[in-house]
Amino acid sequence: MDIDRLPVQLEFFNQIRASLPSHETLVDVVADILRVSNDSAYRRIRGETPISFDEIGKLSRHFKVSVDKLLNVKADSYIFNGKLANTQDHILDKWLENVLAQFEFMRSYPGCKLYYLAKDLPLAHFFQIPELAAFKFFFWQKSILQYDEMRGSRFEIGQIDPTCKMLSEKIVATYNSISTIEIWNAESVNSTIRQIEFYRDSDIFYSKSELLMMWDIMEELINHLERQAECGLKFAFGQHPQPGMASYEMFNNELILGNNTVFADFGSFKLTFLNHSVINYISTQDDRFNNYMYAGIENMIRKSEQLNNVNEKGRLSFFNRLRHKIYDARKTN
């Protein structure tokens, strides 16, 4: 047996094991991907049989394991994975399917805790109310992805693709089942407010009733999030909290505005999702990067005001500031 090879091969399978959903077994998945027997898969996992370069390639691509990291190549670099939304080969419903898959993966680990550093409203909250989801889908397709068919179009609040609507509802239900800590700033609502104002000033709303409804919906969403913060639980818009629901912690950080980073702590491993180009994310499972990120998040939490449960004064003050921003924007209609 090659003693020098053994620690690297064992660590390779340890990383794969850490990324497996709780309902899957390592030996079954490895045997299926490599098309070998379970006994042969066991021998590779235990290091008794060396894995070939071809097998390393198949497993690392499937599980997104960094071979560079295992071999200590370029210790100052990090391997990220991600898909790019575009108008050619990655339409909106495919992007939503990817978002849903990430949340479903987190939900498959009962002990997973999700951290969200909110520069904007956390992504799933846009989908709490169908009319707000319709607005965000329209905005992303027209102003970010610049779909050709959206040129000259105006926003009608009832127009929403059925598939996107179904996927957004699943995203909300899945997100609401994951214990979450969100770190906000009063500026976190600004970008959505400015998007509504821009479409108002550009005469892109089909009618004034659509515009007024968007302001109503924004306030309703803020009220809903305030109720979640008050009881410390996540629940669907228009519903009531029930025992056993996922926990919800909310913090206000006056010093730092988040960057829409999403951090998932699975216990045995961690994942960081970095936001870029408005709606895209890249992710890494690199231990050194994630430990650094986790330490930074803990520091942000220590310097933030918790808005949950007993802090009625701080919570009321924070959410009143958000409502006042919406009120000020609405006055100029």
Rank of each mutant, 00 (worst) to 15 (best):
S108L: 05
K119Q: 15
E97S: 12
G57V: 10
S19A: 13
G111H: 10
P241A: 02
T284H: 04
F235C: 03
Y206D: 08
E55S: 15
Y281Q: 04
Y327L: 12
A229G: 07
V262Q: 10
D148R: 11
N98C: 12
Q15R: 15
R17N: 12
D93S: 11
P7D: 04
I144W: 00
N253R: 08
S66N: 08
S202H: 15
A329Q: 03
F12P: 05
D148M: 06
G267T: 07
S19Q: 14
L307Q: 02
F198E: 12
I217G: 06
A41F: 01
I144H: 02
S283T: 09
G158A: 10
P122H: 02
L71P: 00
N280D: 15
F235S: 01
S52F: 02
G111L: 04
K208P: 01
M166F: 08
S209M: 12
H62K: 10
G47W: 05
L257T: 12
I3R: 10
I282S: 09
Y292I: 11
K165S: 15
E156Y: 13
V65C: 07
I160C: 04
E156S: 13
M214N: 04
G244V: 04
D216V: 07
P7G: 00
W95R: 13
I222W: 02
K58W: 07
E312P: 06
F266M: 08
L20Y: 09
